[in-house]
């Protein structure tokens, strides 16, 4: 570990401890690290967007090829992007609407296809299967459970009809399926959060303390 890396590791470790101090109680060190967290994250956006997107996809093609038939639309994109910022100028704030319209329009369009062709159709197809289609009896039973589960969950989400009688009972079964899904999600969330904590403790023990000891020539 070089001196610069060790210095960086110490800064990182101190910031980690500042944030962890919130576990005891709210305090100025936590507030400091929290504000730095927000600021650094926003600054990070600026750096990566300018270096990884705007430079190679907008500035360089226009600089290298000039304004041609192929690159003309990039200039248009740049203007559409810049126009988004007119919303901060009260007198011409409505200019930004046109850019927003193109931006939202494109993503809404692609999202519609994605949801219908990429989710509703394959998910529904996987639910509507032939139970006698050659699989084992267990497969058929599982497929039946899935069919009942999907149907009853959809019934639960169908709010146009009052949940009474058979409809109400089916909706209740749907809730059970949902609860099982949410319970599983909770179990997995516990697992995920613990994993993230492991990452930080590992950093403090291995990289910070271990790295410092190694740099000082103590231990392996």
């Amino acid at each position: 570990m070089t001196g610069m890396e060790l210095f960086g590791t110490w800064i990182a470790a101190l910031l980690t401890l500042c944030l962890m101090s919130f576990l005891y109680k709210d305090n100025p060190l936590f507030r400091f690290a929290e504000a730095l967290f927000a600021g650094v994250s926003l600054g990070y956006y600026i750096g990566i967007t300018m270096d990884q997107t705007l430079r190679p996809n907008l500035f360089e093609p226009l600089r290298d090829s000039g304004l041609t038939l192929e690159t003309g639309h990039l200039l248009f994109a740049g203007l559409v992007g810049l126009n988004l910022y007119t919303r901060y100028v009260p007198k011409i704030a409505w200019f930004a609407r046109s850019s927003l319209a193109i931006y939202v329009g494109y993503y809404v369009g692609i999202n519609m296809v994605q949801k219908l062709q990429g989710e509703v159709l394959p998910q529904a197809a996987a639910t509507m299967v032939d139970l006698t289609g050659g699989g084992s009896p267990t497969d058929a039973l599982n497929a039946l459970v899935v069919f009942i589960g999907v149907l009853t969950v959809l019934i639960y989400f169908f709010f146009s009809v009052e949940h009474k009688g058979v409809f109400g009972k089916a909706s209740r079964v749907g809730i059970w399926f949902l609860m099982l899904g949410f319970g599983a999600a909770f179990g997995y969330t516990v697992m995920g959060r613990i994993s993230l904590l492991i990452g930080r403790i590992n950093f403090l023990v291995i990289q910070w303390i271990g790295g410092t000891l190694q740099a000082l020539g103590i231990g392996g």
Binding site: Q123, V146, F177, L180, G181
Partner: peptide
């Protein structure tokens, strides 16, 4: 069962 619940939510 979780797959079914998630599928219902996704659809």
């Amino acid at each position: 069962p979780n797959g079914a619940a998630q599928r219902g939510i996704i659809i």
